[in-house]
Write a protein that binds this DNA or RNA. Sequence first.
DNA 1: TGAATAGTGTCTATAAGACAATATCCC
DNA 2: GGGATATTGTCTTATAGACACTATTCA
Lengths: 235, 235
Amino acid sequence: MRGKFAEEYLPDVTVDVVLLSVAPDGALQTLLTRRMNEPHKGLFALPGVFVGRRESLQEAARRALRDKGGLTDVFLEQLFTSGEPDRDLRGRIVSVAYFALVPIANIEERFATAADTQIVRITIPWTGEKGGPVRAISARGASVDLAFDHSEIIGGAIKRLRGKLNYTPLGFELLPKNFTLYDLQRIHEAILGRALNKDSFRRRILASGFVEDTKKKQTHTAHRPAVLYRLKKGR
Amino acid sequence: MRGKFAEEYLPDVTVDVVLLSVAPDGALQTLLTRRMNEPHKGLFALPGVFVGRRESLQEAARRALRDKGGLTDVFLEQLFTSGEPDRDLRGRIVSVAYFALVPIANIEERFATAADTQIVRITIPWTGEKGGPVRAISARGASVDLAFDHSEIIGGAIKRLRGKLNYTPLGFELLPKNFTLYDLQRIHEAILGRALNKDSFRRRILASGFVEDTKKKQTHTAHRPAVLYRLKKGR
DNA sequence: TGAATAGTGTCTATAAGACAATATCCC
DNA sequence: GGGATATTGTCTTATAGACACTATTCA
């Protein structure tokens, strides 16, 4: 039954992608797809694919994002590889998780509302970098059960993101090219799950050397417009 | 040719282990095994095994350490999974790297001097958490060429260790049960590749809550004996 | 002019680095 | 006592949080 399949794919290696985005209201969101086959048929799961024989792991992750979320040019980083023997009834499956970061504006409406995909909000029942499973809430406010250990994997992505946010440019991947410092602060607050001090956040970001002034300002605000910054090249 | 093999193992998944230890002189060391088969036959490589069908990834890593290094009860953490299509001539291989930490005293002499294994010193041609390949130096002082991308993987282990050293109890895995604060400082200096301020290192460690006084002291020192500490339980 | 947020200046608390002084062991 | 390192105390410096004040836009 698997003859043709085994020629084109590694029969026991899959890639799953945790796509994270921050909504305008500050909620963390991720993309899920409905499983069409056993095991866990009907449940929602992270978008995933079997790894092709002539394809790197990262290429497989990009293919999953393209085919199941219509996304290209996305930040990707490898997360963790799971391989408990009893994880999947189809036989022994080793699955490499990636996490992806994308500005909320880049997600096409049709993927958020299609029959077999949805964007869910994530709530995190732990603080700091403790880690553990998270809860997924559908757009209608219902709790969404996840297949496999995918709730734990999403938690791992957030844990990793929290750990690296302060000394890497990861936060910028969730913003458009130009942004205000307060936009960036809201991204950081969404990821860290707590309010940040405005003054020292500004100082820290400006001192980090990651951003540069675009010499432009917001327009059409009902208040003093903020300076727009962009990620500094070559860092 | 692979019939029996494929029944017992996943034909395209291996686990490789970076075993790190700190020598008394402050050098980082790792265990290598000589490759008996193509590709890269004759070169030294990280100890690795194919993953068994009824075995978790971590169990496979423990088996590699036991069979190729005589080690049990070792700290293990998953590092990174490599899977470039052209990485291995045998066909498509996905390989999960783990890093292990062990006190230098636990490594049996026979594994350091056997014909097909050796302990090498590592030199790191980058600072901070930049990452990249490292160089391996044999006990006789000769440079050792590594198979595959294993030099890069060892670099990844050190990068990870540097990143987590300051807020996790990883350093203690390289020390015996009881140790002085200066012992711990030497471990940190070896991993970070730079000298640390003694005063603030003490303060930081004592304030971290990771250690507790054993009420014992060094004996037979030619100077004032230092208090022995141990890792505090339940942290 | 008033509402609303941007941006600046200053004070305080905390943690790290520097350095000096004292303590304790073995010979 | 002398050599050697441990341990403590104090001062200085860098950074984050708190808070007050000024600036700038649109309605």
